[in-house]
Design a protein around this nucleic acid. Sequence first.
DNA 1: TATTGTTATACTCTATAACTATA
DNA 2: TATAGTTATAGAGTATAACAATA
Lengths: 148, 148
Amino acid sequence: MVGVVNDVKLPETLAFRLGTVGAVVADRFAERIAAHDLKPKHAGLLTALSAGEVASQQDLAARLGVAPSLVVALADHLEGLGAIERVRDPRDRRRQVLTLTGHGRELLQACGEAARSLDEEITAGLSAAQRKALQAALGVLAAEAGRR
Amino acid sequence: MVGVVNDVKLPETLAFRLGTVGAVVADRFAERIAAHDLKPKHAGLLTALSAGEVASQQDLAARLGVAPSLVVALADHLEGLGAIERVRDPRDRRRQVLTLTGHGRELLQACGEAARSLDEEITAGLSAAQRKALQAALGVLAAEAGRR
DNA sequence: TATTGTTATACTCTATAACTATA
DNA sequence: TATAGTTATAGAGTATAACAATA
């Protein structure tokens, strides 16, 4: 091994692989939810609404890590689909409180099913043990990523 | 458990997590290589050059899954940095053969080191076994993603 | 004066289409 | 006529900044 430089192979790093695999998976997810007239960011907004108690558009912007003006556009679209409702907070009329409608919950469920079937395709080449390990490790990373 | 709908939780799917984690990691990688005046796509092009025998711009476009016109822009930039050289193929003067220069190899190495140090931060919250499992599983997924 | 949501604007990324030169 | 590369143009996505209503 003498003479072999201690070089790092970029394509073998987790960072590079997570980035490339993530982009491919995100594209495929986007294709599947496009039939519902949704894009990944819409699914993210619906998810945040269903999960947390946060509901003002500013809160959502912070939670999703996007500009407040983008939340306006996302919410406009979701409202047009009947997936969410905007209600002025009576105690502070500057705030818009967003809530999921029944249809919004249905759409979120459809996104979940699209993701689940995609999961099956993705993990087709992995052993059961690998799937479990991947699920666990990504759970940790996703929690960290959400905290930023 | 009676009464609990069999709902899929989107944020717990691999597809959703890979997409969100991948985006965060890609952003952080981009921040680190920006000091070298590179973006992730440049690193991808350098990687493809260093790995394969393919070298024409059309080949690269197919390999990276981007439009040929984008390869022009990426190659222009890399050539300006002195990272690659363009040489006309004498047997078919329409083709440009791209080759890595010594500086290009240095830059690729720097990207690899940036990714490696990012890997350490990313996996700080994982056990050694989880790291290994994640590495193996992502290796499979990256190979699949690259084949599309 | 500060904050929420909105609108107007601009910037980045990338693709499509038109064009040039070679074949 | 077909192909490699280039240039011109356009679209998607998103941020920044200016603005209106409310606090």
